[in-house]
């Protein structure tokens, strides 16, 4: 769980980057193939606040989400230059109440529960809800965002403000 530079093995670093970063690369590649045929489209890559800021105990995750952040821009610029009518943007959620953070909710910190400790990280004082991130993704996939490409969309309760 505590994945620091000292704790993390090469195998673990590679595994996390394969899923988060290589996986996103493959998703973009496949999507472009299909979208070209359809005359255009919109790709959303889920990065994280940990693709914007470092974290002592999520080092490999941060690296992988930093990769997604810049990969997204590279894909966006390529599609724009090629006039594919395909946009590509990254979404950067804070801590969202999903199964991914369940282990963290168990980690009590001092006199706070794990949940409280995570909530405190956000100026809004709570975790995000999946539907709040989904709404941002929908915006990016729709014609509401046709002038946005290669950009970072943050959904983090003020964490990185």
């Amino acid at each position: 769980m505590r994945n620091s530079i000292e704790d993390c093995t090469l195998a673990e670093y590679r595994r996390i980057n394969d899923i988060n970063s290589l996986g996103t690369f493959l998703g973009c590649k496949s999507a472009i193939g299909a979208m070209k045929a359809a005359g255009g489209g919109s790709i959303v890559n889920i990065s994280s606040v940990l693709g914007l800021r470092g974290a002592a105990y999520a080092m490999a995750y941060c690296a992988s989400k930093g990769a997604v952040r810049t990969l997204t821009k590279n894909v966006a610029l390529h599609c724009a230059q090629m006039k594919y009518n395909i946009r590509c943007n990254s979404v950067h959620p804070g801590y969202i109440d999903t199964p991914m953070i369940a282990p963290r909710l168990e980690q009590n910190a001092g006199n706070m529960t794990g949940r409280q400790a995570l909530e405190e990280l956000h100026p809004l004082g709570r975790l995000g809800r999946p539907e709040e991130v989904a709404a941002m993704i929908l915006f990016l996939l729709s014609d509401e965002s046709t002038f946005s490409t290669g950009s970072e969309f943050v959904c983090d309760g003020g964490l990185t403000a």
């Binding site: 620091s4 970063s21 470092g54 999520a58 080092m59 690296a63 992988s64 930093g66 990769a67 990969l71």
Partner: peptide, 11 residues
Amino acid sequence: KGAVRLLSKSV
């Protein structure tokens, strides 16, 4: 290189 940027901050 995006990975290196964030890795460095975490370190």
